[in-house]
Write a protein that binds this DNA or RNA. Structure first.
Lengths: 157, 157
DNA sequence: AAGTTGTATGCAAGATTTTTGCATTATCTT
DNA sequence: AAGATAATGCAAAAATCTTGCATACAACTT
């Protein structure tokens, strides 16, 4: 695929966030490239795929984007999930200020993916419902995705 | 990868089910290959990947298995979901007797995937909690997956 | 400040899983 | 049985994710 323009809905002025401090708080070495990637991520108002971020960033290698996302997730700066589209989606735009487990878990929420346009929205009006699990199962992650057709795509059809 | 033996935990005697009628009820032409595949599917007591089914069936081409699973899902004979393992999983072993939307929706349930062994279990003790969605979003599918470490893998570590 | 060490990055290529084109075969209809 | 339609197998492509390795960068030591 050719590297063409991609849009990230603008979210908040870069000046509002101290990216370097944010990386420090998550025990991530704040290299120049990581800061660039973090700034790029912060511009996405909705969950994004690795490819979208790569196209948006434009100067940074695919493998670096990949490894950086892995690092960021390991250090709980963002979270990822599969939305049924075949691509993994990453979500940063809810506060991942603290790196502890409780804060990280609190950032998780329901996602709604449109089968037509492939976009994923966050559903934050309600927490992910907690359910009882098989005995001895140690939960690390909860992923609740609703698939269907969004209102825009429904109107178009 | 070489085609080696794979186990599908045995579930119920083939005689108990009338596969041909089941296909008919879902408006699927009951070809010889499809019956074979359906029988194979019925032997899996837990969600399985396309690859697992392909290896288990042994004589049927990968693309046929793929297209058959697509057909079966379109006709609501089974359902599929992404469990975070990178492979799509298919689930048949709860009654998909009727082909109508309500029955199909009723078959959906929570899944728990072990990050270590990659196995996915069904959590049927509780229905998938219903949540309010963005206005105008037309739900087709609900997918609730819990990831973590299962009790067997936890004991081994 | 220069040298040393460990980590991060870019490039290229590999691995995995899913998907498709097309010729052949099977199934269904008349 | 002939013709029409759909399903299947084979091969290969596409899409996505992942890794090996050489170079570049950052932090630390002296």
């Amino acid at each position: 695929m050719q590297k063409t323009a991609t849009f990230a809905v603008y979210k908040k002025p870069a000046s509002v966030m101290n990216y370097e401090e944010l990386l420090h708080r998550h025990d991530i070495r704040p290299t120049a490239v990581r800061l660039l990637i973090l700034k790029g991520i912060a511009d996405f108002a909705a969950p994004f795929s690795m490819e979208e971020l790569y196209l948006f960033l434009d100067t940074i290698d695919r493998s670096t984007v990949f490894r950086t996302l892995v690092t960021f997730e390991e250090h709980r700066l963002l979270h990822s999930f599969e939305d049924g589209s075949g691509k993994r989606k990453y979500c940063f735009h809810h506060s991942h200020e603290a790196a502890d487990e409780a804060s990280h878990a609190a950032c998780r929420h329901i996602h709604a993916t449109c089968r037509v346009c492939g976009r994923t929205m966050c559903v934050t009006t309600q927490a992910v419902p907690v359910v009882p699990l098989p005995d001895g199962f140690e939960v690390e992650n909860v992923n609740y995705v609703v698939t269907g057709v969004c209102s825009s795509c429904k109107r178009r059809s």
